[in-house]
Design a protein around this nucleic acid. Sequence first.
DNA 1: TCACATAGGGATAAATTTATCCCTTATTGC
DNA 2: GCAATAAGGGATAAATTTATCCCTATGTGA
Lengths: 122, 122
Amino acid sequence: MYERKILPNLNCGLDLIGEVLYGKWKIRLLWFINEGNQRPSELQRKIPDATRRVLNIQLKELEEHGLVSKIIYPVVPPKVEYSLTEFGQTLIPILSAMGQWGDTNEAHLRSVILKRIDVGSQ
Amino acid sequence: MYERKILPNLNCGLDLIGEVLYGKWKIRLLWFINEGNQRPSELQRKIPDATRRVLNIQLKELEEHGLVSKIIYPVVPPKVEYSLTEFGQTLIPILSAMGQWGDTNEAHLRSVILKRIDVGSQ
DNA sequence: TCACATAGGGATAAATTTATCCCTTATTGC
DNA sequence: GCAATAAGGGATAAATTTATCCCTATGTGA
């Protein structure tokens, strides 16, 4: 695992939540797990742009942060199921509000985001 | 400005909000601006761990994404004021909920975050 | 027997984000 | 004249995060 050289700022609640949600795929993972996609392979299918590798890494972080729990069934072929912990579930209303905000403002957001990116590319 | 080689995913509302909030200091900037710290030097004092440089860069992104607006007064020494746009203000309830969640769970979060980090360091 | 599905990890490269350092402008106070 | 203040930008290094590639294990079905 990467060993940090610069410690994160943990001064206030926003810092703390930022620390556990920071990660390209974490919010989506929480969301899809909450929707019932519990197995790694289902999550991969839901998030095809991410590689298995990163999803595993980010799932492990979510687990270490106490947001999801993992059950490994001792069968072959292997079977694993993730689910939100009680603690992780308390995040759902917030993620839901975030998603709604994004959906509500989709047109505008898509426009300004792409404007910053397509400066000569494509 | 850095030219992206990998385009971001913009499949759903969560992706969109993630894109505009992603940045080490952005949430804090929005928060402090909302609290009335409008001038760059005030923001720097509020966020001493960030350098002027990064704050400027992230403020510019927030501006380009339509969340904050910037007024430059033509005086010397220079005077600049940032404020939330109407659009930016719609984010405040969400940031507030996020901050509260972090505050409520401060002890637990601090513990699990530090556990992941202090694996041999310090 | 060969391909496939399932889950996961190591090593390393590439992408992206932050940090550092230094430079500019013009006025006020000493 | 010299230091401090206000705001900000360029160049470059360092830190951090993601992506790529390859390898392991074991049963099931064709």
